[in-house]
Simulated scan of single mutants.
Amino acid sequence: MIDYKHASDSEVTISQLMLPSHSNFGGKIHGGFILSLLDQIAFACASKHSENYCVTASVDRVDFLNPVEVGELLTLKSSVNYVGKTSMVVGVRVESENIQTGIKKHCNSSYFTMVAKDGNGKSTKVPGLILKNENDIRRFLKNIKRQELRNHHDETFDDFEVNLKTHLDILEKHNAKIKLD
Score class of each variant (00 low, 15 high):
Glu134Val: 01
Thr86Trp: 00
Gly91Thr: 00
Ser79Arg: 13
Met88Ala: 05
His22Lys: 04
Ser58Asp: 10
Asp3Thr: 15
Leu74Pro: 04
Asn24Tyr: 13
Asp39Ser: 12
Lys85Cys: 00
Ala42Gly: 15
Leu38Thr: 03
Gly26Trp: 13
Thr56Met: 06
Ser8Gly: 09
Lys122Phe: 13
Gly84Pro: 01
His106Thr: 14
Phe25Asp: 07
Leu73Trp: 00
Cys45Ser: 14
Ser58Val: 10
Gly27Pro: 12
Leu131Val: 05
Asn133Ser: 12
Arg93His: 11
Ile130Asn: 11
Pro67Val: 05
Glu69Thr: 08
Arg61Ile: 00
Ala116Phe: 01
Glu95Tyr: 13
Ser8His: 15
Gly128Asn: 02
Asn52Phe: 10
Tyr4Arg: 12
Gly27Gln: 13
Tyr4Phe: 15
Lys117Tyr: 06
Val12His: 04
Ser36Thr: 14
Lys104Glu: 07
Ser109Arg: 12
Ser8Thr: 13
Glu72Leu: 09
Glu51Gly: 04
Gly31Ser: 10
Ile34Glu: 05
Ala57His: 03
Ser78Leu: 02
Lys117Pro: 01
Asn135Ala: 11
Arg138Phe: 01
Ile2Pro: 09
Val89Gln: 11
Pro20Gln: 13
Asp3Tyr: 09
Glu51Ile: 03
Phe43Gln: 09
Val83Cys: 08
Ile41Asp: 03
Ser36Gln: 14
